[in-house]
Amino acid sequence: MLLDGVDHVACLTHDPARLGSFYAAVFDAEIGPTERHGQDGEETMTVMRIGPHTELNVFTIPSSDEADRQTPMWHRGRLDHLGLRASSYATFATIRERLVAHGASDGTVSDFGAAWSMFFRDPDGLEGEVLVPKAADGSHPVAG
């Protein structure tokens, strides 16, 4: 393959501090400073490192109401949801516990063939999914 994963996903928010707190608490994300961005002086950007090579580039644009728009799955436009890969069964279980504790997921884990999957919704309403590849024996990542 010519690519090595996803570098970043850009999204909009009205509250980068709240969003950063969520991703830091649940995913151990590293949250950078919010800095001015763009030509008109209105836009800001906050970089949230969510993996060794992956970031959320979070923009705030006060004159835009796009961050308020929420629609059902498969009707959200070209970017419908964010899929994140857990590094192991143990981290998947930790993320699951944190998402449930934050009220962002009911903790349901679904069998998606080659991977286990769990959906969540961040504080801005963006739907996300955490996946972990199945172990060779197909065991459940949060069995117990």
Results as ranks from 00 to 15, higher is better:
residue 24 A to W: 00
residue 25 A to M: 06
residue 25 A to W: 02
residue 26 V to K: 00
residue 28 D to C: 04
residue 28 D to T: 02
residue 28 D to M: 02
residue 29 A to Q: 02
residue 29 A to E: 03
residue 30 E to I: 13
residue 30 E to A: 14
residue 30 E to C: 03
residue 30 E to D: 12
residue 31 I to K: 01
residue 32 G to S: 11
residue 32 G to L: 13
residue 32 G to F: 08
residue 34 T to Q: 10
residue 35 E to K: 15
residue 36 R to Q: 12
residue 37 H to V: 05
residue 37 H to N: 11
residue 39 Q to K: 08
residue 41 G to E: 10
residue 41 G to K: 09
residue 42 E to L: 15
residue 44 T to V: 11
residue 44 T to F: 09
residue 49 R to P: 00
residue 49 R to C: 03
residue 49 R to M: 08
residue 50 I to M: 06
residue 50 I to P: 00
residue 51 G to P: 03
residue 52 P to K: 11
residue 53 H to W: 07
residue 53 H to E: 10
residue 54 T to N: 07
residue 56 L to K: 03
residue 58 V to H: 01
residue 59 F to K: 00
residue 60 T to A: 12
residue 60 T to H: 08
residue 62 P to S: 07
residue 63 S to G: 12
residue 63 S to Y: 12
residue 64 S to P: 04
residue 64 S to Q: 08
residue 65 D to A: 14
residue 66 E to H: 14
residue 66 E to F: 14
residue 66 E to I: 09
residue 67 A to R: 00
residue 67 A to G: 03
residue 69 R to M: 04
residue 69 R to I: 14
residue 69 R to F: 12
residue 69 R to N: 10
residue 70 Q to M: 12
residue 70 Q to V: 13
residue 71 T to A: 15
residue 71 T to W: 13
residue 71 T to C: 08
residue 73 M to S: 14
residue 73 M to Q: 14
residue 74 W to I: 13
residue 75 H to A: 14
residue 76 R to M: 07
residue 76 R to L: 04
residue 77 G to E: 05
residue 78 R to E: 08
residue 78 R to V: 13
residue 81 H to A: 11
residue 81 H to T: 06
residue 83 G to M: 14
residue 84 L to I: 12
residue 84 L to R: 05
residue 84 L to S: 07
residue 85 R to T: 15
residue 86 A to D: 07
residue 87 S to D: 15
residue 87 S to Y: 03
residue 87 S to L: 10
residue 87 S to K: 10
residue 88 S to N: 09
residue 88 S to T: 08
residue 89 Y to Q: 09
residue 90 A to G: 09
residue 91 T to N: 12
residue 91 T to Y: 08
residue 91 T to Q: 15
residue 91 T to L: 05
residue 92 F to Y: 06
residue 93 A to T: 11
residue 94 T to S: 13
residue 96 R to W: 04
residue 97 E to Q: 13
residue 97 E to T: 12
residue 98 R to K: 12
residue 99 L to K: 03
residue 99 L to R: 01
residue 100 V to A: 07
residue 100 V to N: 05
residue 101 A to I: 07
residue 103 G to R: 06
residue 105 S to P: 05
residue 106 D to P: 04
residue 106 D to F: 00
residue 106 D to R: 08
residue 107 G to E: 09
residue 109 V to A: 01
residue 109 V to I: 15
residue 109 V to E: 01
residue 110 S to P: 00
residue 110 S to T: 04
residue 111 D to C: 06
residue 111 D to K: 05
residue 112 F to S: 06
residue 113 G to R: 04
residue 114 A to D: 12
residue 116 W to P: 02
residue 118 M to D: 01
residue 118 M to E: 01
residue 119 F to Q: 02
residue 119 F to T: 02
residue 120 F to S: 02
residue 124 D to V: 08
residue 124 D to S: 11
residue 124 D to L: 06
residue 125 G to P: 05
residue 125 G to N: 11
residue 126 L to C: 12
residue 127 E to N: 11
residue 127 E to S: 09
residue 128 G to H: 09
